[in-house]
Write a protein that binds this DNA or RNA. Structure first.
Lengths: 163, 163
DNA sequence: TTAAGATAGTTACATATGAAACTATTTGCA
DNA sequence: TGCAAATAGTTTCATATGTAACTATCTTAA
């Protein structure tokens, strides 16, 4: 039985020249995806149930903590979320009294958003938590590596001219 | 009207000392998440509709291209997907005749999976496509940066002892 | 001024995803 | 042996998410 298992694990059944299979664990987009999901899940685990707060809701709150009186569209831009996701997150945040929504004077389509006192309280509890996760992550790197990472991310984030 | 908009954009309504809001766009987990999603979506766009193939399905196929005769559980391990996701992806792949599923001799719980000829055909079309996206991405970096990125990812991928 | 088009935001629908319960089979050990 | 626990995989259900259609309001230009 174990023979079968071993046979199944032998790396290359097909010559690379024949089919050129992808080595997923060396494939950059795949690695980024796994890494990012793992990290986000770890952080979310810490506040998700404790504050009944989803990742999207937290992102909206984080943006409103930095920029008061944004409209939903502006929140969407700053969080890189689409407007429907923002609308839903806001619906919950307003319902739970964490965000105060007014209507813009002079443009009744727009909302004017800000954290309530309760919202600030949660923010002030979650922000250090998130920050400490980031610190833990960066602790795996030395100073030089951190500098390169900054630089590399800045470059990778530039929109693809080729696409 | 534009006055309001400008006012809303002024960066720090609250003193950093008071609430220490997160700068999302400098926050590593957030940056990784956006970057990774952007990249994955760009790649997926190229094969998603053309081959009626989801990201999870493609990952399963990529693994089966490298390692023949895996069980579903082994596929799950190698793709970092959970077994339910794999089960669903496999259901579709088998139904569309892209993957052949047998039962393991000697353990009737296990499946024994491999790409069909049709599956290989799709793999051979999609793999270079994915690869070229990666190449385009890496083209944004110079050789030195690529070396550092490798090293940094290796380190970040190590499981957190602190967690 | 006013009708066509643009914009802000919500709702509806279809699909994706995750957790838990379930079935079938195998393993381990009294 | 033979029964409790473990394992492989599927199904179910509740929730999340993306796309498109919709409402309300605003802008623009004839």
């Amino acid at each position: 039985m174990t023979d079968h298992a071993l046979a199944a694990h032998s790396p290359l059944e097909h010559s690379p020249l024949e089919h050129a299979p992808l080595e997923l664990e060396r494939f950059l987009p795949y690695r980024l995806s796994i890494l990012s999901n793992t990290i986000s899940q770890e952080i979310a685990r810490d506040y998700q149930q404790r504050y009944d707060l989803s990742v999207t809701e937290w992102r909206v709150m984080a943006v409103l903590a930095r920029f008061e009186l944004l409209s939903a569209r502006e929140v969407a831009q700053r969080t890189a979320m689409d407007k429907v996701a923002v609308s839903r997150a806001l619906a919950r945040l307003v319902a739970s009294g964490r965000v105060i929504r007014r209507t813009h004077t002079g443009d009744k389509r727009r909302s004017v958003l800000r954290l309530s006192a309760r919202g600030w309280k949660i923010h002030d509890a979650v922000a250090p938590l998130a920050r400490s996760h980031e610190t833990g992550l960066l602790a795996k790197l030395d100073g030089e590596e951190r500098t390169w990472l900054e630089r590399i991310l800045d470059k990778l984030e530039t929109l693809d001219a080729t696409a």
